[in-house]
Deep mutational scan, measured.
Amino acid sequence: KFNKELSVAGREIVTLPNLNDPQKKAFIFSLWDDPSQSANLLAEAKKLNDAQAPK
């Protein structure tokens, strides 16, 4: 279960257009550290992506 959630969340995070590479890497490392938090980490990444969207 975690492997699928981890890969789905990881793929989504790397495609978020408004995150820079260090931010993406930080989220990916957090996913590896605790795969059970993949849904929460993906939600946080999406929030940050939205907040950094060009206005």
Rank of each mutant, 00 (worst) to 15 (best):
K1V: 11
K1S: 13
F2K: 09
F2I: 11
F2Q: 11
F2R: 09
F2P: 11
E5I: 11
E5T: 08
E5Y: 06
L6F: 06
L6R: 04
S7M: 15
S7N: 09
S7L: 15
S7I: 15
S7P: 06
S7E: 14
V8M: 11
V8W: 13
A9L: 11
A9Y: 06
G10E: 15
G10R: 12
R11M: 13
R11F: 12
E12V: 13
E12G: 04
E12Y: 13
I13K: 00
I13S: 02
I13N: 01
V14C: 15
T15A: 13
T15N: 14
T15Q: 13
L16I: 01
L16A: 01
L16E: 01
P17Y: 00
N18V: 00
L19W: 01
L19S: 02
N20P: 03
N20D: 09
N20T: 14
N20G: 05
N20A: 09
D21L: 09
D21Y: 12
P22V: 15
Q23Y: 02
Q23V: 02
K24H: 00
A26N: 11
F27K: 00
I28Q: 03
F29V: 14
F29A: 14
S30V: 07
L31P: 03
W32N: 06
W32Q: 07
D33T: 10
D34K: 03
D34W: 00
S36F: 06
S36G: 08
Q37M: 07
Q37H: 05
Q37N: 12
S38H: 13
S38F: 14
A39Y: 05
A39Q: 09
N40V: 11
N40I: 11
L42C: 04
L42M: 05
A43Q: 10
E44I: 09
E44S: 06
E44N: 05
A45R: 00
K46M: 07
K47R: 13
K47M: 10
K47I: 09
K47P: 02
L48M: 08
L48D: 02
L48H: 02
N49L: 02
N49E: 02
N49H: 01
D50E: 13
D50S: 07
D50Q: 10
A51S: 13
A51E: 11
Q52F: 05
P54R: 07
P54N: 09
K55R: 12
